[in-house]
Simulated assay, not measured.
Amino acid sequence: MTFIKTTEQDSNYNHLEKMTVNELLVNINNEDTAVPIAVKNAIPQIESLIEQVISKLKIGGRLFYIGAGTSGRLGILDASECPPTFGVTHDLVIGLIAGGDTAIRKAVEFAEDSTTQGWEDLKAYNVSTNDVVIGIAASGTTPYVIAALENCNDNGIITGCITCNKKSPLSQISQYPIEVIVGPEFVTGSSRMKAGTAQKLVLNMISTATMIKLDKVKGNKMVDMQLSNNKLVDRGIKMLAKELSISYEDAQSLLEKYKNVRAAIQNYNYGY
C-alpha cells in the first residue's frame, strides 16, 4: 500500500484570504470538531500503550516523549506539567526535542532530519529496558524520531508513537502505535492545528491515566500537587476542608504543617 500523508493533503477550503474573520473562525472550528472523534476511534491503541507505560513506571522505569517541532514541544509540555500536577520527580516523564532546548522556542534547521541524534539524546539519560519511549510525529516520517525508536527496538526498549497518518513509517516500527487520523488541515500542511490538538488530547490521556493508576490522585483530586502558588495553596486547603469535614482555617493549619495535601489527610486520619 502506498503511504499517503493525509496531514499534507489540500485543505477542504480554498481562498482563505477572501474569508471574513467570522468565516475563518467558523470553518476552523468546524474542522476541529473532527478531532475528538478521531481520538475516540484510537482509544484501543491508546489503552494498549498506556498499559505498558503503567507497567514500566511501577517497576521504576521512566516515560520518554521524543519529537521535533510542534510534536516535540507538545511532549515537553506534557512532561513538564507532571511534577506540579502529580508531585512526581522531574525525571519520571522526560520530553526530548530535535535541536535541544533551543528548539522549544526557535526552529533549529534540519535538526529533525538527523538519524543519529535522537538515540544520542536518549542515551544521555541512560535509557534502558525499564523505560518506555513514545515518538511523536504528526507526519509519521520524522527521521530523528524514527531512528531513535529503531534503536530502542534493537535494545529491547518498549516503543510507542502518536501520529496522524495511517500506516506511516513511524507506526510501522513502533510496537504500540497510536494513529489519530484527523484529515487535511484548514491551512494545508499546518499540522500544528488539528494534528497538534489531537496529539495534545492523547498526551493528556497518557499522563493522566498513568498517574491515576500510580495512585497520584485520590477520588478526583490532585492530592500530590506541588503548592507552588497561592491559587494551588487555596485549592489544597479547600480539598482538605471538604475531605476531612473541617473548617477552612483548620485545613489551612494542617497544610502549613504538612506541606502536602496527601500527607495532611494521612496524618489527620491517624491522629497525628
Score class of each variant (00 low, 15 high):
F3Y: 13
I4S: 08
E8Y: 06
E8Q: 15
Q9R: 12
S11L: 10
S11R: 14
N12E: 13
E17V: 01
K18C: 08
M19N: 07
T20S: 15
E23S: 10
L25M: 15
N29C: 10
D32H: 12
A38F: 05
V39N: 08
K40P: 00
K40S: 14
I43D: 00
I46R: 04
I46V: 15
I50T: 15
S55A: 14
S55M: 14
L57G: 01
K58V: 01
I59E: 15
I59M: 15
F64H: 02
Y65E: 05
Y65S: 11
G69K: 00
S71I: 01
S71Q: 02
G75S: 06
D78I: 02
S80Q: 10
C82N: 02
P83A: 04
P84F: 04
P84C: 06
F86N: 01
H90A: 14
D91N: 15
V93P: 00
I94D: 02
L96C: 11
L96P: 07
A98I: 03
G99A: 09
R105C: 08
K106Q: 13
A107M: 09
V108F: 01
S114T: 13
T115E: 12
T115Y: 04
Q117S: 12
Q117W: 00
W119N: 04
W119L: 06
E120L: 13
E120V: 12
E120F: 07
K123R: 11
N126Y: 08
V127D: 05
S128N: 13
T129H: 13
D131W: 01
D131Y: 03
V132I: 14
I134W: 07
I136D: 09
T142F: 08
Y144K: 09
A147T: 06
A148D: 04
L149C: 06
E150G: 06
N151P: 00
N151I: 00
C152Y: 03
C152F: 09
N155F: 10
I158E: 07
T163Y: 00
T163I: 01
N165E: 03
K167M: 08
K167Y: 10
P169C: 07
I173D: 00
Q175T: 13
Q175P: 03
I178R: 03
E179R: 03
E179M: 05
E179N: 12
E179I: 01
E179L: 03
I181C: 10
V182Q: 11
P184E: 09
F186W: 12
V187G: 08
G189V: 04
A198H: 05
I206L: 14
T208L: 05
T208I: 07
A209L: 14
M211R: 06
I212C: 07
K213Y: 05
K216D: 02
K216L: 11
V217A: 13
V223G: 00
Q226G: 00
S228K: 06
N230L: 13
V233Y: 15
R235M: 10
G236Y: 00
I237P: 02
I237D: 02
M239F: 10
A241G: 13
A241M: 08
S245P: 02
S247I: 07
E249F: 05
S253G: 03
L254C: 14
L254E: 15
L255E: 07
E256F: 06
Y258K: 06
V261Y: 00
R262C: 03
N269T: 11
